[in-house]
Design a binder for these strands. Structure first.
Lengths: 366, 366
DNA sequence: TTGTATGCGTTATCAT
DNA sequence: ATGATAACGCATACAA
């Protein structure tokens, strides 16, 4: 009641009230070193009476550990990152860690700036959805300085960091295989397909053909295109570049436009594969605006399972990444590194779940 | 290149290399106090060569400011909190602040634990979606200790904290008015309606009637019920308790069940009002499972505008809270408090946007 | 088991 | 304008 306003209680005041030294008080409260039960009780009582709260800055300064991990997400507003973050937060909270969150908007400059700030705040580790898959000196530097890095969703070439993702190529393949089995021959794809150092889709197709590509250090949308191409090729079907909708800049409007282009082709595809949540939503919009009926006029399979896909009619067949589990896994890897685990970097590919619903039928079954 | 691994450069080493004292080096780098341009350049050069990065823990320890704000969200996975957080993050980042994020799952114990951790980490302020609207001593205490608190979505009675929300009661009223104007007389409501100190809905209706209720310190779902009741009463319509679907525990399954109960009533409502995003999704699911047609068999208006509401057919009429703006406003209020603004606490009610789409029609227009 | 003294990396105070 | 030195609040080596 009568405490002076704004005055923060330090361990020294607790010590004085308990009649011991600050060192003893610290040991009694901090749970390190030795101290008698009797003393412990006395100190704890004094601390309670004073309303003592440790200053974690001071502790961190001396221990070199902040029990805080930094997270660089693309955009926390997207269900993708929100779910991953939920998983991260659950695991870290249970371990007494806090999380410092930043958005990069998938931009390298933002990511660099964020990593810098987080490191200055002395986070114990960094969980990052990297924007640059080939260079990223800021991440190499973090690792070199002993700051563990765990990557999510995609891998950085030559960076010895744990990575948590799914096998996008295989998952995408599974979707396309499913459509092919049902008899589809013209399958459209709508994907972001930004960030590729060569000359776009034709060059990419060439690289796939020549087998010279390490698909694990591609951005997910390219990995998914890879699976698409592979599925078609293995089925002896030609890849029609016209059916590949490359949205480029990541936007709903772009995705809508690209979907419309595909659906207004003379020889319209009988099925559509959308490579992520934003693409799916935009594609739905485009499909509705053309008054096409699913699955009668068009079959649809989506990468990423969004809540509405299960309750609209017909339900939308989708492949679901285990997002929360990915976040949890990333956090667990991080905690283990922080505890000193020096083993080889892990490349964790969690298994996506295929949710068959009503948006897929044999072609021409209207 | 030849730096020792794992060694962190301190200001003392920069000072030595630049041939000045640590105090001078600090002033040159930290932008406080006085120093000649010539010295500034020399020090900055030394810092760059050494790769110096300030340790923000040490700075925070002495300045008493961490440039970090703590956020206690209900569940970051929900689009509601994710969007608000996006707004918060944008504004704080621009001001050079970091955000420490926690989830409370709308549980008081979690919130208290979170606030404690955040305060021990010495955050400069707390943005909280409070779980307890009448007591919350932990928030009073923060305020007393000079740690600014900004509330989002709901207000704590007698807590002198800035609050950012929408006028849920008026917004809800607007939705119900719209339905009444179209001729609906039996309008169902599906809402969480947990957390109420009295004996549930009947007691609440009684309190509303007697006008003894301060609707601004109710949980949003109760405020929305308030608007519902008000709209009906003002139109001279009786409130049928049977049409009030109280889900209780916040779950999709509960909401689905309660929706089914309403829709299987002998005298089925002609319109449904869902009081938040989760309720809306669950209601859609229930409606689909009964093969009811919107808006022919049933009109639907939803509180909270989710992405799918605009692209499914028919589109779902909804009232949209300006979530990002709410987050931005909360962050701006916080920054202003941190800068020392001591004026009266603000109660900011942003204006929701009514999105009329295709899920509403006159009753019996099937 | 406890106390003393020192250090963590900064900024703040006060001479000069 | 600059430098020596004392904080900040805690943990840790070492002595007792």
């Amino acid at each position: 009641m009568s405490e002076k306003r704004h005055h923060k209680i330090t361990i020294a005041e607790v010590a004085k009230r308990a009649g011991v030294s600050t060192a003893t008080a610290g040991r009694a409260l901090g749970g390190y070193g030795y101290s008698r039960q009797e003393i412990k009780d006395k100190v704890r009582k004094a601390a309670d009476e004073l309303g003592y709260r440790p200053n974690l800055l001071a502790r961190g300064l001396i221990t070199g550990k902040t029990k805080t991990i930094g997270v660089v997400a693309g955009d926390i507003q997207s269900p993708f990152y929100a779910s991953i973050l939920r998983g991260v937060a659950d695991v870290t909270r249970a371990a007494g860690f806090g999380i410092l969150l930043t958005n990069s908007d998938e931009r390298l400059d933002r990511e660099i700036e964020a990593v810098q700030l987080l490191r200055e705040k002395q986070v114990d580790g960094l969980i990052v959805a990297p924007s640059d898959l080939s260079g990223s000196p800021h991440l190499h530097e973090a690792l070199r300085d002993g700051c563990p890095v765990v990557l999510i969703d995609r891998r950085v070439r030559n960076l010895a960091a744990d990575t948590v993702s799914v096998d996008n190529r295989a998952a995408s393949r599974e979707c396309i295989d499913h459509l092919i089995e049902l008899g589809h021959r013209r399958i459209g794809l709508v994907a972001e397909l930004e960030h590729w150092d060569s000359d776009g889709v034709p060059a990419f197709l060439h690289a796939v053909e020549s087998g010279s590509l390490d698909s694990t250090t591609l951005f997910p949308s390219w990995q998914r295109l890879y699976g698409y191409v592979e599925a078609l090729s293995d089925a002896g079907l030609a890849v029609d570049p016209d059916l590949i909708g490359r949205v480029g800049i990541y936007s709903a409007e772009g995705a809508r436009r690209e979907t419309l282009r595909l659906l207004e082709l003379q020889d319209r595809p009988t099925a559509l594969f959308t490579a992520d949540g934003l693409m799916s939503a935009a594609a739905m919009d485009a499909i509705a605006s053309l008054d096409l009926h699913i699955p009668g006029d068009l079959s649809l399979v989506c990468f990423d399972d969004l809540d509405w896909m299960s309750f609209i009619r017909p339900g939308i067949t989708a492949i679901a990444q285990p997002l929360i589990e990915m976040g949890e896994a990333a956090a667990r890897l991080m905690l283990s590194r922080i505890e000193g685990d020096e083993t080889e970097p892990q490349l964790l590919a969690l298994k996506p779940r295929f949710a068959a619903r009503g948006s897929v039928a044999a072609p021409g079954s209207a």
